[in-house]
């Protein structure tokens, strides 16, 4: 595992989730959550060094969804800002790299999604090879079924649960990061990011061993996911918990799983892990997943400094 030039901690976070948001738009959903997270450490947007978000136009149903969402931030005077068309957990990884440079010492990471607007299983088909696979419209749940069956066929997992989706509809998560002394100034209980890594696999299912998660294993090694006390895993279907535990070598540790809203769920896992271990001296692993049958996986190792 590579060491950081500067230690980075999660110092605050806030989340809102609901099966289907009836009345508010993205900006109205984000505003109170961002303000909540900033307020926990007494920061204003003007004091944030770098802002980065994760979202998907295909979930929102129109192009440039992230552009309007920026209205919730108050980007004036102009801010250092970027956006990934990925789960917010990957945006957090980008923020950690950005903070290494030393020009700024705080970052706001947020993610938003309203998949309840459309048919998520069908929408995700558009992620697949546009020439040979997507035209067949294989839905996300069906592909997960192939994964569960491959696990059963491997005989390595005992009982493999059925494919029932657990993802929540709509939501937003905001996380505040800070480096070294700045983190210690902002909170008595910073949660240090000791390692963060992510890896991708080939998309074509025939090229992969669906009965294991090679990318989770590599990312876990890269992030230094050893001596773990608790796990906060991003899994979209119950059978995927077995794959992640296997890849990370988790056995007796308490495991807390959630799917969350697509694009938000991974960042939410990191935020929840941080909240849970803040001030405890414990070491947790948190994961995020993306793509059909867990094609891409992120692993973060967090340590809650003892209060």
């Amino acid at each position: 595992m590579k060491s950081f030039l500067r230690d980075v901690a999660i110092v605050a976070s806030a989340t809102f989730e609901t099966p289907s948001e009836p009345s508010r738009n993205e900006v109205e959903m984000l505003l109170p959550v961002i303000h909540d997270a900033l307020g926990q450490v007494g920061l204003s947007q003007g004091e944030i060094g770098f802002t980065v978000s994760g979202s998907s136009d295909y979930l929102q149903g129109y192009t440039f969804a992230f552009v309007g969402a920026l209205d919730a931030v108050g980007a004036w005077p102009p801010i250092r800002e970027s956006h990934l068309e990925m789960d917010g957990a990957f945006a957090l990884a980008e923020a950690v790299a950005y903070l290494q440079e030393g020009h700024v010492d705080t970052a706001l990471v947020y993610a938003f999604a309203r998949p309840s607007r459309g048919d998520l299983d069908r929408t995700l088909s558009v992620q697949l090879d546009p020439y040979t696979v997507a035209p067949l419209w294989p839905d996300a749940r069906g592909l997960a079924g192939l994964q569960a069956q491959a696990m059963r066929d491997s005989g390595r997992y005992g009982d493999v649960p059925d494919v029932t989706p657990t993802y929540v509809g709509d939501g937003v998560t905001a996380v505040i990061l800070a480096t070294g002394d700045r983190a210690r100034e902002l909170t008595k209980t910073p949660v240090w990011i000791r390692g963060i890594d992510h890896r991708i696999e080939a998309q074509m299912l025939g090229l992969r061993d669906l009965g294991s998660s090679a990318s989770t294993k590599l990312a876990g090694e890269g992030a230094g996911a050893t001596n773990i006390d608790e796990a906060y895993l991003h899994v979209l279907y119950p059978h995927q918990e077995l794959l992640v535990k296997d890849a990370l070598g988790l056995d007796r540790q308490p495991v807390n799983t959630a799917a969350g809203p697509m694009m938000v769920g991974g960042l939410e896992r990191l935020a929840t892990a941080a909240k849970s271990i803040a001030g405890t001296g414990k070491r947790a692993v948190a994961t995020a997943t993306s793509g059909a049958c867990m094609q891409q996986n992120l692993v973060a190792v967090l340590e809650g400094a003892a209060a």
Binding site: S56, F90, V126, Q127, P130, I200, M204, Q295
Partner: peptide, 21 residues
């Protein structure tokens, strides 16, 4: 193509590596 990095990972030699979009 939604999140086309997923489809392009193999073509760009990214398998087993970090990839951001």
């Amino acid at each position: 193509v939604m999140m086309p990095e997923l489809y392009l990972a193999d073509a760009l030699g990214a398998v087993g590596k970090p990839m951001l979009r």
